[in-house]
Design a protein around this nucleic acid. Structure first.
Ligand SMILES: [Mn+2]
Ligand SMILES: [Mn+2]
Ligand SMILES: [Zn+2]
Ligand SMILES: [Zn+2]
Lengths: 149, 149
DNA sequence: ATGATAATGACAATCCTTTGCAAGTGATTT
DNA sequence: AAATCACTTGCAAAGGATTGTCATTATCAT
């Protein structure tokens, strides 16, 4: 339904949901547009954003991340490092991509696969379970870190 | 290599690793043997264990769960509810099972699948990533909760 | 511009988990 | 059986991410 997500279109989306367009929210949004492909924690966003706007508070960052995730602009991830990590949701990905998490350096890479679709059908039949979402992660070592393992 | 995991065999395993066989550790282990198939949080273990041994401390529960997970007796799970959940590791499951998590009642069910094996081969080639472990979860609604969804 | 109302920032509070520490205990040696 | 000593325990305090409170400020429809 939606096409490309520009800064403007997202601002409109916020307005349509009757969220106010504050400079803090704009700055945070900008940060993600400048870091598509990254998986940022609240603290990391906070640090990046403080360069533009040193007055901003960490609580505001948390609140804004919540909102942006709620309206589908950001995806909230848990990679097991004790904090939530957010990434810009590029496409209208109903079935989003999966993650490869390096146990050495913590770097996160991605991959797409449709294999889970067929798996879901099996599960629904076998367990009478209505699947709403799935989460697949691979833990291992990236090419830089993989030497010793 | 290992066969059935009895209370005795696990005690021996602890001794072999030069862990002392304290009554606290035995009680916690018993609790899991009496609740195979459950996914217990530290707090839940603490509550169950206090019936047998009211003197036990929560910190001891945490420390024991750590040890039992480290030596492969327990599996540590993160189902996204803000606490770690441990389950008895029944078989020598190198590739362990996956979880269906009900968004309604929080109940956790399980299923096995070998589909990921072939997927791993693809990933290794495509991303030159050495996979050590994977984590697959499905979120949805169980048959009891599924009516309204 | 004005007012209703939502949002902000500073800080306290919460929740799960880990850690420091003094006292206690299990396993091993005499 | 007693001594030994490193490992364990329970308690309280500390951590770390996230949320709640609340007075102040800013947005936006009118
Ligand atoms: Mn991603
Ligand atoms: Mn399980
Ligand atoms: Zn790496
Ligand atoms: Zn349910």
């Amino acid at each position: 339904m939606e096409e490309v997500k520009t800064f403007e279109s997202i601002c409109n989306l916020l307005r349509n949901r009757s969220y106010k367009l504050t400079p803090q929210r704009q700055t945070i949004l900008q940060t993600f547009l400048e870091h598509v492909d990254r998986h940022l924690s609240a603290e990391e966003v906070y640090m990046l954003v403080k360069h533009q706007n040193p007055e901003i508070g960490l609580a505001t960052v948390y609140r804004t991340l919540d909102i942006l995730a709620e309206i589908g602009i950001l995806l909230k991830n848990d990679f097991g490092d004790g904090r939530s990590r957010y990434e810009f949701s590029r496409k209208d990905e109903h079935h989003h991509h999966h993650h490869l998490i390096c146990l050495g350096c913590g770097n996160v890479s991605e991959f797409d696969d449709d294999l889970l679709e067929s798996l879901e059908a099996v599960i629904i039949k076998r367990n009478q379970f209505k699947i709403m979402d799935h989460d697949l992660k691979f833990y291992g070592y990236c090419s830089q870190c993989g030497e010793g393992h």
